[in-house]
């Protein structure tokens, strides 16, 4: 995911009060048009008991929801020696300095993965009204339908593009976590579980299959129509040519008979 991402130019939000001065906010490399701020709070061993609550509040300041899946955000994870709060636009971690690189890596990968999945889901949601409107073209195509040919082609392209993006994402989602387990692998695994990523991936795949089948059928009807139309024109051309030939032949016969 990081290969397709670029460093974000959005200014980093400020460090909240109530966390150690050694804390820092970093902007994760995300896809263009989005940003993700990570607050890293090095564990010192004498944190105040409500430190986790401070992190939670800071992450929840920029509300992003996933109402379609009824997932309550932010997600709070407590892993071995690491406390983590995650939302699509912000996350915060309580961990020793040595863990920060692993956490950053895991969160960058997961945030980009989840954002891409959400974008694909949004694309699918946007495609459904057009699917309903285009249903008749999967059954038959006529001269009256000719004008929507380019629109159908564009929608077919959109669906196929979404399918391609999802296929690349599925490869990442189903990749087994490294063994022996690493912190980055465990964070990714837990976040995928909590955000129901596998379930969403399967659902998106099913929906895209329906859309793709539909536009495949529309394409087939349009193609059949164009072939039939071309054959029709060809037939009439032949008829006209034959008629012309017959007429010329008749004229020739009559003129010879006169002489």
């Amino acid at each position: 995911m990081t290969a397709d991402s670029s460093p974000d130019s959005t200014p980093a939000p400020g460090i909240p009060a109530g966390v150690p001065a050694t804390s820092r906010v970093e902007m994760l490399p995300t896809a263009a048009g989005s940003s993700h701020a990570l607050l890293l709070v090095p564990r010192t061993g004498d944190e105040s008991p409500d430190a986790a609550e401070v992190l939670h509040r800071w992450v929840a300041e920029t509300p992003v929801s996933r109402p379609r899946h009824r997932i309550e955000l932010p997600i709070l994870l407590r892993l071995y020696n690491v406390d983590l709060v995650w939302s699509p636009s912000r996350s915060a971690a309580f961990a020793s300095e040595e863990r920060c690189a692993s956490i950053r890596e895991a969160l960058t990968d997961f945030t980009n993965l989840e954002a891409e999945l959400t974008a694909i889901e949004d694309g699918i949601t946007a495609a459904w009204p057009a699917y309903e409107a285009d249903l008749p073209y999967a059954y038959g195509f006529s001269d009256a339908s000719f004008s929507v040919r380019d629109t159908l082609l564009a929608r077919y392209g959109t669906v196929k593009s979404l399918q391609g993006r999802l296929a690349r994402l599925t490869k990442q989602i189903t990749q087994p976590a490294p063994q022996p387990p690493t912190l980055a692998g465990q964070i990714g695994e837990r976040l995928r579980e909590r955000l129901r990523v596998e379930e969403r991936d399967e659902a998106a795949d099913g929906e895209l299959e329906v859309l793709s089948d539909h536009y495949d059928a529309c394409g087939q009807r349009a193609s059949d129509f164009m072939i039939a139309r071309r054959e029709n024109m060809l037939s009439w051309t032949i008829i006209v040519l034959l008629a012309t030939e017959t007429l010329l032949f008749a004229i020739d016969l009559l003129s010879n008979a006169g002489t």
Partner: peptide, 19 residues
């Protein structure tokens, strides 16, 4: 579960083992 407690410390992954 994937952890072993070394002394008082929960060692649950390779990063913990390294540390």
């Amino acid at each position: 579960g994937s952890s072993l407690i070394h002394g008082d410390r929960l060692v649950g992954n390779l990063d913990d083992v390294r540390e």
